[in-house]
Amino acid sequence: MKIEEIQEELISEFAMFDDWVERYEYMISLGKTLPLIDENLKTEDKLIKGCQSKVWLNSEMNNGKVHFTADSDAIITKGIIAILIRAFSNQKPQDIINANTAFIDEIGLKEHLSPTRANGLVSMIKQMKLYAVAYQSQLNS
């Protein structure tokens, strides 16, 4: 599936819930489906800066597509990173670079987009795009 299609799917899933409690509960449940980072890879260089909770993010390139794994010590953060991974993992680097992130707003998690927010959603997106840029430059060279 393309990134836009996955994002549309996420938007319609979250639209099924009437209030924030249900939306957060769903986000927490998505966190439990997160493709977990290998314990050995939970090193300082995989940590994303700017989060109050710890977030480790790893990426690998297989057959021209970027695969992300991650983990966090906070459950809500885990849910957020799971949503991002669902949208951006198994995609071509160029598609990740070009991807729009407005869907975060549409699924009702707008408050997490503010750069002062301590969960570092913005930093997570930035880090995923940085990995994609690095892989794209490998492909170009």
């Binding site: 409690v21 957060y24 109050q52 909770s53 010590d73 906070a74 809500i76 953060t77 301590a118 969960n119």
Partner: peptide, 20 residues
């Protein structure tokens, strides 16, 4: 439970506490 998670949920209910 991570303090950040508690802070986020109670903020949704209008309560301002500090976490970290």
């Amino acid at each position: 439970i991570h303090p950040y998670d508690i802070g986020t949920i109670v903020d949704k209910m209008g309560i301002a506490v500090r976490t970290g």
